[in-house]
Design a protein around this nucleic acid. Structure first.
Length: 530
RNA sequence: GGCGCGUUCGUCUAGUGGUUAGGACACAAGGUUCUCAACCUUGGAACAGGAGUUCAAUUCUCCUACGCGCUACCA
């Protein structure tokens, strides 16, 4: 039997980090076992479900490249089947009509109300004391025929227990006495969650249910429904939760955008990096290694490696440097500086395009490159111990590609997100860039002589016909000696004038990359000084 | 309140009776030096507490504490 798993989000908001991780684990398991990864939108709560949410969830999955198999199932389309199942159970005497009039829906703090009610009930409450449970079928039919509204509840046996072997949490048992006669169908005919899930999972022939640990107790209720329906339940695997730094729930209301997958896409994260990070939250392949390609994740994934304890998604509010989990940020930077250029360049292209910095002439280089350079998958190696600047040179074979490719490869080593290519790296792609005031202060204004010296350096560059690394070094060194100043003063001043910022690659590379003409122009410019 | 689940460095984690308790991020210090949130080196940093089983417990059992989840005619 081939494995069939599903990701079943309810479209009541954007794709949450926790949900994305659930989707990822389902995906990895399906791919690992050669099975199917299905998608079901649980939109039975009409009041809260929105099409916009559905789209946002689909966008998030697409960004993470978690492609689903088969058609998307919308749970609301199956309501008739859910009703039929409830009716069948009613007819078989496995469920009963509850004519208790529906309580007025409590508003705002519904969670608290529920909790208070549960607490008030103490442990003494008998879950089987519903008077309608014992109503004769005849009387029940008669009252229904008379038009009296009713909900349908599952008739849970008095004695016994549900039990199942969870792939993550092990043997789970729960006495029937702990489970109420759960409502299957609302008095307005609307099917409820647990019924809908079970019916759909049966219909979709789901073999493994991999979902958040918050559903652990639901599993018992669902097993009761499976049993009533006479169907063998699927294998369950519950995942530990992802919590906020205060060990509380990671919620939209409290934590805002930080829990949304699209935030990371929009912040310039590389999807593969974020996916890698997510995979290691609550699961470990048991290796002293952090970077895993999708192929490796699939190969190494197993339910055994999933933890039982919750993981904290770490971040500090009001701290720009640690606005989201440090490890996620590190991983993103790691991907940017070590992933294959063939994979990185298209991402940079998208970034430059949206910043209106893209030029058509780069396109030709891209085409040449993607057809020649092997992808990371092929070369396999991302060796973080090597000096990245060396990797850069080797992997591109200097001279065989043009300016755009070499430039991206040069500047990527100090970048953290894709956004940096258009922001910090803007000066490489445009004459229209800003000067960081702090950099101007530190590298230019502190050394007033530079105001004369740098244009003078430009004059030394002017006659050069071979404008490259070694030659530039000779010129600048001689120039610094001549002025009796440290090389650094000249280099840093030039860096700020040429790139607008205080950090970047070796200045010799910067000169070479920006080129003779532009270097001269920028060294002579006075804009930064004002 | 009841029921369930969990507890290794600040965080993500390795570890399944005998380890100097390992790695990664973050942090700190040093180095390289033309800068740096890059790179290199080094460092501090953990088995929640208590009983038991055992020659030996981070690892097995029990208790306590703490945390989390569920407890709805929501999903």
């Amino acid at each position: 039997m081939t494995t069939r798993v599903r990701f079943a989000p309810s479209p009541t908001g954007y794709l949450h980090i926790g949900s994305a991780r659930t989707a990822l684990f389902n995906y990895l398991y399906a791919r690992k076992t050669g099975g199917k990864f299905l998608l079901r939108i649980e939109d039975t709560d009409l009041a809260r479900s929105t099409e916009e949410s559905t789209r946002s969830i689909l966008d998030g999955l697409a960004w993470l490249e978690l492609d689903h198999d088969e058609e998307i199932v919308f749970q609301s389309d199956n309501a008739d089947k859910h009703r039929a199942a409830a009716k069948k159970l009613l007819e078989e005497g496995k469920a009963y009509r509850d004519f208790t009039s529906k309580e007025a829906p409590s508003d705002a703090n519904i969670k608290d109300t529920i909790k208070d009610r549960a607490r008030a009930g103490q442990g003494e409450k008998n879950m089987r004391d519903n008077p309608y449970r014992k109503l004769s079928p005849e009387e029940s039919d008669a009252r229904a025929a008379a038009g009296e509204p009713f909900a349908i509840r599952l008739k849970v046996a008095e004695i016994g227990k549900t039990s199942f072997e969870d792939s993550v949490y092990g043997l789970q048992e729960r006495d029937y006495a702990e489970t109420e006669d759960l409502v299957l169908l609302r008095s307005d005919g609307h099917p409820l969650y647990n019924l809908a899930v079970v019916c759909d999972d049966i219909e979709m022939a789901i073999t493994h249910v991999i979902r958040g640990q918050d559903h652990l107790t639901n599993a018992h209720k669902q097993i009761l429904i499976y049993e009533a329906l006479g169907v063998t339940p699927p294998q369950f695997a519950h995942l530990p939760l992802i919590l906020a730094p205060n060990k509380g729930k990671l919620s939209k209301r409290k934590h805002g955008e930080i829990v949304s997958i699209t935030t990371y896409r929009d912040a310039g994260f590389v999807a593969a990096a974020f996916r890698n990070f997510l995979a290691l939250l609550g699961w470990s392949p048991g290796e002293e290694k952090e970077i895993f390609s999708l192929a490796e994740l699939i190969e190494k994934f197993s339910l055994d490696g999933i933890h039982r304890s919750n993981a904290i998604f770490n971040f500090k509010e009001n701290d720009p440097r640690h606005w989201t989990d440090d490890k996620a940020q590190w991983m993103n930077a790691e991907y940017i500086r070590t992933m294959s250029l063939a994979e990185l360049l298209p991402l940079v292209k998208a970034e430059l395009k949206s910043a209106k910095l893209w030029r058509e002439e780069y396109e030709r280089e891209l085409r040449a490159l993607t057809s020649t350079i092997p992808s990371t998958e092929d070369t396999g190696a991302i060796d973080i111990n090597n000096n990245p600047e060396n990797i850069a040179l080797e992997s591109v074979e200097v001279g065989s590609y043009d300016w755009y490719v070499k430039t991206v490869d040069l500047i990527r080593h100090r970048f953290f997100t894709l956004k940096d290519f258009a922001n910090q790296g803007r000066a490489y792609f445009s004459e229209d860039f800003d000067f960081d005031p702090a950099a101007v202060e530190k590298n230019l204004k502190k050394f007033p002589d530079l105001r004369e010296w740098l244009p003078e350096l430009a004059d030394r560059f002017a006659p050069m016909d071979y404008f490259a690394h070694d030659r530039i070094e000779e010129i600048v060194k001689a120039f610094a000696d001549e002025k009796g100043t440290k090389l650094g003063v000249i280099m840093n001043g030039a860096r700020t004038l040429l790139t607008g910022v205080a950090v970047g690659p070796s200045m010799l590379s910067v000169f070479e990359t920006i080129g003779k003409e532009k270097s001269i122009m920028r060294l002579r410019s006075k804009v930064a000084w004002n």
